[in-house]
Computed example of a mutant assay.
Amino acid sequence: VHSMNGWEDLRRRLAADRRCYAFFHPAMQDEPIIFVQVALSCGLSSSIQELLETPEREELDNSTDTAIFYSISDCQKGLKGISLGNFLIKQVVMEIRKEAPQINQFATLSPIPGFRTWLRKKLEEEEPNNGLTELIKFPLVKGPISQAIYSEEQKTKVLKLCAEYLYLVKKNEEPIDPVARFHLRNGASIRRLNWNGDTSIKGVEQSLGIMVNYHYDLTRVEERHEAFVNQKKISIDREFSKQISDTEIQSSK
């Protein structure tokens, strides 16, 4: 998901406070089927750039309490229709808990690939003369989207619309966003949105730089998985619920 920038970047992603897990098959012993990159950190991460650039921690102490799944990559196009990511994540959680029992929080730092496209279309149809519409059309460049570009009011509105996109915009009763579908089906909940979560050109083009944390509460994963599969219920945490009005939450039930 996040391309590597040379050997130093590769070395950092394989450092003492990082993990990389993969599924292999005997027929392709030297090539993974799918792999996930994990950062072991103190608390939840809100920026992929900060996560990738954080100095290496040579030892894991008791303050290392969180595992962040920040990149999941399918390597075989022919297996695209087979969902292996959920099995890999569950296996990885068991491995990490065995190795580092002090880690008690499992979450992702995930992209929102279709948000900007959806938002642009929505605003053009509903609010064509809104100043925000012109900002979204503008070919944004790499870097933090600061108040120099967006006012605080516009930032709040964009985050609210992003919450709406993840929680209310659906296809066949499931979220239209493919990453959201994947994690919610696995039993995760939507934890929070992160402004300037990915300030790369790709991140800005996809979602205006916003990223989302999905939270895997191990005591409720199966319950939430069943609720999503059988009732199409989307589980959300308190931080995310603050970005959606009670009316919108009720309308989705």
Rank of each mutant, 00 (worst) to 15 (best):
K142I: 09
K157G: 04
E125N: 12
I201N: 05
H183A: 11
Q37C: 07
H215Y: 15
R238S: 15
I48P: 00
G114Y: 05
T64R: 07
D177G: 01
R57S: 13
A16F: 06
V158N: 05
L184Q: 03
I236E: 07
Q105K: 13
L123E: 06
I33S: 11
I244G: 02
E164Y: 13
Q147E: 11
R19D: 05
E222T: 09
A39D: 08
I190N: 06
E223S: 06
G6E: 10
S46E: 11
R116T: 14
I112C: 10
S46I: 00
Q37I: 00
L40P: 03
R12S: 06
I48W: 01
A163I: 01
E125G: 01
A15T: 09
N186W: 06
A163T: 01
R12E: 09
Q243Y: 05
S251Y: 01
Q105Y: 04
T219V: 10
N5Q: 12
D177C: 12
Q154F: 09
S3M: 13
Q49F: 00
R185Q: 13
P139N: 14
P128M: 14
E124S: 15
T219Y: 06
K233I: 06
G78C: 06
R224M: 11
G209T: 02
I176Y: 04
A22C: 02
I176M: 10
I48C: 10
A39Y: 01
I48Q: 07
Q102T: 10
W7D: 12
Q29T: 03
K170W: 04
P139Y: 02
L10K: 15
E126Q: 04
I48A: 04
R220E: 14
P26V: 15
L79G: 02
I82F: 04
C42I: 05
V229S: 07
E8V: 02
R116W: 11
S241V: 01
I236W: 00
K202N: 14
T64G: 09
D30V: 00
P139R: 01
E173N: 15
W195T: 03
N196F: 05
K137G: 03
R116N: 09
N129V: 02
I145F: 03
I68E: 08
I249E: 04
T156L: 15
A22Q: 05
R11Y: 11
M211Y: 02
G81P: 09
L79M: 13
S47R: 09
P178Y: 01
G203R: 09
N130W: 15
N130M: 08
P178I: 08
S46G: 12
R192H: 07
E226N: 09
N130I: 12
R116H: 03
S189A: 13
